[in-house]
Design a protein around this nucleic acid. Structure first.
Lengths: 179, 179
DNA sequence: CACAATTCTTGATTTGAATCAATGGCAATC
DNA sequence: GATTGCCATTGATTCAAATCAAGAATTGTG
């Protein structure tokens, strides 16, 4: 690369951020609870789910697929151990970027710092949308909202995980989809 | 002030950010839907609620009281018109800081930019907690989680708004509180 | 390719929170 | 400081989604 890459470009570039390519097989864990997340991942190919377990039930929080970044944000930012799992839904390739290298890059110039702020803004805004989704009372509306905003999700992710993400059972989601 | 104030100090300081003191009476609106939010507010005294209306029902998203800042973040950041209401729950005093002055300050030096990034980080993390709250199935657990994390909320905010925030009816919340 | 395992669908039943309804208590304001 | 509206509580009933239970379809794997 001739120019200094922006944050997203840098994340996938081995040269800039010492990222390490990792291949995950279906159902393999990238992270499990009790571990501190010291990496952020750029997803090259495949799909991942971030979830937590409560009263023996898995609750899906977020999905990532080709082109996205994913990490256990709380742990990554605070250094506390994570409460979450990150698991490959199918065969997946990620670039694993160490936190140190990531923040070294972020703080290395003004433009990167600005981009980092914007990244966090985007995150906060996405979370606000997510909050609206989850506040919506009827399962049917929750489904419609997410279907409209993220149709790709339904191509990439098995319905049973989406059902959990939508705060309903797979049975309910199935019935909704058949009118 | 002798030193350059940090972001939060600046927000309440009339000299730095041209903030304007505003007094709101009970139930008065600081913002209504369809309007672009060009301000961020530092709450000096009182309490505010941020909510939206869907199918004739109000849904509470967030509360703010003394020492907090509040704004309709999406509108504030993107310049699109807001879908939310911000309303005084009781007599309230805020410092109203124009977006332009706010970002002028933020971009004026490296330290402020860093603080802004951290502010957005905090926001994203709070939103993640909120997501967990909302994913929790049982009303009882949702209540417990929030009670534990934000006991002050129950001192500041009427129960009917908290019930909405907790995604349940006032009746259900009332029954939970009496064991 | 064929078998195994997982995921999705469909039906019957249960359950817990919403709704409907009424009363009591508190607080705002005149 | 009275009065009026708002807020919280309590009870009875309804209802929609969860659960339980098979079976069908799809997908992964040897």
């Amino acid at each position: 690369m001739q120019h200094r890459p922006n944050l997203l470009e840098a994340l996938r570039s081995v040269e800039y951020l010492k990222s390490e390519k990792r291949e995950l097989s279906r159902h393999e864990y990238l992270l499990t609870p009790g571990v501190v997340e010291n990496n952020i991942y750029f997803i090259e190919e495949g799909a991942l789910r971030l979830f937590y377990v409560s009263r023996n039930a898995e609750h899906d929080i977020r999905f990532g697929y080709s082109g996205n970044i994913i990490t256990s944000l709380g742990s990554f930012l605070t250094g506390k151990s994570s409460e979450y799992y990150i698991q490959a839904i199918r065969k997946t390739i990620v670039y694993q970027v160490p936190k140190t290298a990531f923040f070294h890059f972020v703080h290395s110039d003004l433009q990167s710092m600005k981009e980092y702020g914007e990244l966090m803004e985007q995150l906060a805004l996405q979370q606000l949308e997510r909050e609206l989704d989850l506040l919506t009372d009827s399962p049917s509306e929750r489904y419609q909202r997410v279907l409209e905003r993220s149709p790709q999700l339904f191509q990439e992710i098995p319905l049973k995980y989406i059902a959990s993400y939508l705060r309903m059972t797979p049975e309910t989601l199935s019935r909704l989809r058949n009118r």
